[in-house]
């Protein structure tokens, strides 16, 4: 019993982390049709910036804010000055993001060195909560809550605000959206900023669990891709469900059949692609 409860909580914590990573990726892909392969690198950059801020004396929460802003701005710059030049040319754009992923990873290695580093959780969230014979880290409970809060915030933004309506319109039909006066250019920048900022904050929140090390980007990117393929690109709900689904599959796969953990991780993706090629909640993207 404790085993199932504890693994379920682990799955939820991992799912929460994956959601923060995948939500941005999914938004960007849905709107701009660019598979942003630098997303893992932005996640790692967020973790490093957060760590540097903590080392500079900021508290954890301020550090998370700094990282989100810094990575968001970096994302905005990437969109404005690089991706924009290749507008409408998907393959070069994807290659560009791949190149950026390498550049960001090597820059992190240069600035922060190759030593894995630990990002301590905030003082008030250290230690474990005990419930009978079940011990569960307080910080992971917080990550679950934070990801739900971010999920709800994003949902409100997209479903209940004017900007959200514009994003939805542009995801559905870009040309029509432009025809009724939505500025795609501003929208693209905004969404890229937002997506990058989400990755950045995910990196900081993930730091105390994953630690910060070169290669974090490459470890996280495939999981983000999995989530998005499973949930459907451009769909917030898809990213949410997909992230938690992968969280469960990953955690239980490793606990129950460790030898086949990676096979099991990719099986649901194969199944979903065979039955619903656009993902569970994805719409056909033109």
């Amino acid at each position: 019993m404790a085993f199932w409860a504890s693994q379920s909580l682990n799955s939820l914590a991992l799912g929460g982390l994956l959601f923060m990573l995948a939500a941005g990726f999914s938004l960007i892909f849905g709107l701009m049709r660019v598979a942003n392969l630098a997303h893992g690198a932005l996640f790692m950059l967020g973790a490093y910036v957060g760590l540097a801020s903590v080392q500079a004396g900021l508290n954890f929460w301020l550090a998370a804010l700094v990282a989100a802003l810094a990575v968001g701005v970096a994302g905005g710059l990437i969109e404005r000055f690089l991706l924009r030049r290749l507008q409408g040319r998907t393959l070069p754009q994807v290659l560009l993001t791949l190149g950026l992923a390498f550049i960001i990873a090597d820059a992190c290695l240069m600035v922060w060195g190759g030593d894995p580093m630990r990002l301590p959780p905030p003082e008030e969230l250290r230690g474990a909560v005990r419930l009978g014979d079940l011990a569960f880290p307080r910080y992971r409970l917080f990550v679950m809550g934070a990801s739900c809060a971010i999920g709800i915030g994003l949902w409100l933004l997209i479903e209940r605000t004017r900007i959200g309506a514009m994003i939805r319109a542009a995801v559905d039909d870009m040309q029509m959206a432009r025809a009724i006066g939505i500025s795609a250019s501003a929208l693209f920048s905004a969404v890229f900023c937002l997506g990058a900022a989400l990755a950045g904050i995910g990196g900081v929140l993930g730091g105390p669990i994953l630690s910060v090390y070169p290669g974090l980007d490459a470890d996280m990117l495939p999981l983000a891709l999995l989530v998005v393929i499973l949930g459907g690109a451009g769909s917030l709900l898809g990213a949410f469900i997909g992230a938690y689904l992968i969280g469960f599959v990953y955690t239980f796969g490793q606990a129950l059949v460790p030898d086949l953990a990676y096979v099991i991780l990719f099986l649901p993706m194969v199944a979903v692609l065979a039955i619903a090629p656009n993902g569970l909640f994805g719409r056909r993207l033109s």
Binding site: Q7, N10, L14, R140, I209, D219, M220, T251, F252, A255
Partner: peptide, 29 residues
């Protein structure tokens, strides 16, 4: 645990608490 596992949580939950010690052998970070 696989070499590049993101999260040790699922393994730590499986480590028994009624043993005298855990022997850990990890490389790199």
């Amino acid at each position: 645990p696989p070499l590049n596992v993101a999260d040790y949580g699922s393994f730590i939950s499986q480590l028994p608490t009624d043993v005298d010690a855990i022997f850990a052998s990890f490389a790199g970070g």
